[in-house]
Amino acid sequence: MNDSELVRILSSIVLQSTPLAIAVCGETITERAGVVNLSLDGTMLLSAMVGFVAGLLSKSVWVGFLAAAGVGALFAFIIAFGSIRLRKDQFAVGFVLTLLGDELSAFLGQNYTRIPGQKVSHLGIPLLKDIPILGPMFFDHDLVVYFTFILVGVTWWWMFRTQHGLRLRSAGERPEAGFVRGINVNRLRYIYTLVGGSLVGIAGAAYSLDIKLGWSEGHTRGLGWIALAIVIFGGWSPIRGAFGALLFGASKALAAALQRRFPEESVVVFNATPWVLMIAVLLLVGSDATDRLIALVPRRFQSRLRQLLRVRPPGALGTLFIPGEAGGE
């Protein structure tokens, strides 16, 4: 393997990871506000299908992305409305939407499978793309990839460096404290659930219009669940989440390379990789065994290592906030 081949692989890992990074970013926003949108797998399937068909019919990828974002926002609205307004179990509603999105995508998209459609066009950034190694890796792609870079950065900045972000995090961390300071917690939860859901929709269309072109039944099946796990692995931070998506893309590329090398034996390994990885990383960030391992390293590295490996969910994640009852008055 020579240098240019390695660069080509790295570049494709960055490209392949972008839709997942968008979905992780969206769900991170939603969960930071305290709502769990469990429907990611179904949302992505349906939005990938709708995005592809809308793009095909309008001959514009942007209409496709817009339609997909609408699908994502609609599913997110059902979850927000169900949990905030109707006070129903958001996990149950999210799970039903997962299956419903899958079935709807199979039914509505049945006449559009395996046909050519629109594709986001390639757009290298002049000058930047000529930087050795980093250029082809990050700046010789298309607008979806650059959008992802900006999205991750802006989300991080919004979340951790602005007043709005402070309010967003208070809604998910300690809603009663935010409420006392005059924040309309449930309105914020509506807004951020819708924003997060739209991004998940865009991620679905990023597959069908760019990274994994076209539509077929079950086109992105499984990836929504992967994204949900990466949100946890990413410690509910958009940058760490994007890093997790990259890591996932890299391990998949590695498994694919292995499969080319040993085609007979390794198809099992290739297919099993994402799911073994899912369990492994969740064990790493969650289990007590990690704490015991950290205790073995020299003391001065311990706190940094703990910060690196351990995560803590937002305090009020997945719970209802009813102002009158939650110490608001």
């Binding site: 949900l228 796990a229 899912m278 369990i279 969740l282 064990l283 969650g286 007590d288 065994a289």
Partner: peptide, 9 residues
């Protein structure tokens, strides 16, 4: 033992 939510496991 591993604090992996049963949905993901």
């Amino acid at each position: 033992r591993g604090k992996v939510h049963e949905i993901f496991g």
